[in-house]
Design a protein around this nucleic acid. Sequence first.
DNA 1: ATGAAAGCGCTAACAG
DNA 2: CTGTTAGCGCTTTCAT
Lengths: 360, 360
Amino acid sequence: MSSDELSSRTPEASSGRRPRLDDVAAEVGLSTASVSLVLRGAPGPSAATRERVLEAAARLGYRPDRAASLLARRRSRLVGVMMKDVRNPFQAELVEDVQEAAERQGYDVVLSAVTRGRDERRAVETLVDSRCEALVLLGPDAPAADLAALDRQLPVVVVGRPVPALRTAPGEAGVDVVRAADDEGVGLAVEHLAGLGHRAITYLDGGRGTIAAARRRGYTRAMKRLGLGGYLSVVPGDRTEESGTRAADALLEERGGARPTAAVAFNDRTAVGLLDALIRAGVPVPDGMSVVGYDDSPLARLAHVDLTTVSQDTAAQAEHALAALVERLDGGRTAHREVVLPPRLVVRGTTAPPPNTADL
Amino acid sequence: MSSDELSSRTPEASSGRRPRLDDVAAEVGLSTASVSLVLRGAPGPSAATRERVLEAAARLGYRPDRAASLLARRRSRLVGVMMKDVRNPFQAELVEDVQEAAERQGYDVVLSAVTRGRDERRAVETLVDSRCEALVLLGPDAPAADLAALDRQLPVVVVGRPVPALRTAPGEAGVDVVRAADDEGVGLAVEHLAGLGHRAITYLDGGRGTIAAARRRGYTRAMKRLGLGGYLSVVPGDRTEESGTRAADALLEERGGARPTAAVAFNDRTAVGLLDALIRAGVPVPDGMSVVGYDDSPLARLAHVDLTTVSQDTAAQAEHALAALVERLDGGRTAHREVVLPPRLVVRGTTAPPPNTADL
DNA sequence: ATGAAAGCGCTAACAG
DNA sequence: CTGTTAGCGCTTTCAT
């Protein structure tokens, strides 16, 4: 971490010019072709030659020019990653994981972030124009039809969002999708709470959208499955902290025996809002009420929050996304694929058995 | 947001091949040279020609190949941005701002993130190999000497971290630096509190490091300047939430008249930890105690946190960083430059006049 | 095992 | 105003 050399030392700073392949070739008295082979580790050159070339290249501080190599190469071995939201920690984690997965597969990654002056369309265009062979789209907003059109140009995998199936023309199967099973995730949370002895478990909703619908459904089904249908209670909300804070009132008002002892929130933000309101209201967590979030965001991991939550396993999502691309690129797969990953419950400090009802 | 077309429609999908410049040229019966001029908006071609070319290009769905164009062009007009930490919201914001500033200056941005398997050195190499003309390094860890070496290859500006001056060889002046005046920032916080009537203002320290030292100094000086030298009190810490939580004990213990009525924290995380502990301890904020953070991170903006804090104005930092690069690139500036930006106090809900001492 | 030569797709002199 | 001619720096047949 400390002595990263940022620039390759150039012991013999022969000239100001950046050394090119033919400089190295001249240095060892070989053709650029042979040098190129050695530098890429391609088979052919003898061990002795390799050594001489490598030594000379290192000595001159040679670094291949990406643009030139990209232009000459048949395949770029580049996958483009579009980040929909640079500030979203979930996506940041995905980027890291995709980067790693790509490296393992022998691909390099080009990043393109959507920003104020740069919409999804432009971010994607940059990637395509940069010779990417395939695209990973992190939570894109584009309609399914546009995604399908893009997929006609090059393999595309959408991560983190379901993409409604399109009436597909023959030979087109739509983009691949990798995402987490949101309904299952909420189910896990509910089961965990029920297992601790909770019955009156409330759900703090996340409003409109495919993901919100899936999570809500997960709650309802889990409650019914566990025979808690009579305790169903969904508090409307909008994914923000305020939403959680407002929900606290609703939860605490219900004094009449039906007052919930636990709450599952659409996401960590909402859960944190709720936590905060509960503490201010003098309700201890988890002893007075249990709270579960969703996302396992850094927020949840903050020591003083220590939120029980549901994790989406970004590493696995990245792995699957890359596998999907590589299979289409190198394996010639043509069929559509949707990978739905099981979420994982992360139990931390905001859940405990319900308070003894005798105390109430 | 809804109907972003991700792929250019290709009404006449003539062939599977991506159209090239000569396809467009052939289409309109011109040379590639003229077409190139039109497409780049370069002066020369007549209005009539322009129109025909543009029309044909659009019809064929032509998009220039970045690698080819990069290779052929003398100047790439590319600036590379290295993100030290993809998950750092402050850096994410900077990326957006740099992107915007670059666009205004007619430059394009290439992103390179440091991740687990990709250290600073590699991230920077990628940028250099991609023909970037200049580099923006967001909070790099590399030692000053390495930065200086890199700066010998191409203009480099370090954002967000001070870089110690090196014994410079003639003609070398070291990297440019753009950062915020940390001491001043803490000074603003202290002044704000003093203005509200606080005297016993404690500082929650951020441990070792240049930045921490600057902020600590800012606190000490401001207190003395305001005649509050007698109230000086620095609680050791390490920038985490726990650090803030632990500090709460120290603050609340001091019952004997000297108990502080306000605290300034090294950063928002620490401030949030403190807030949390205060609330749990039954001390109302801001009525029982005022708290100021530093960074104006999203954390501070959360509705239920609503933290008074110090903002570093990423937009201005980005603007200055790009200006510095452009001046060296296009303006031939050679002298060293360090821009230190004044921070801005963002007053929110965690600061108020001190509780009436009669009440204590 | 190595070299010669022909591009990759675009840009930039320089002519006309 | 437009076309011709060279490359940009590297990879890749295809010979040798």
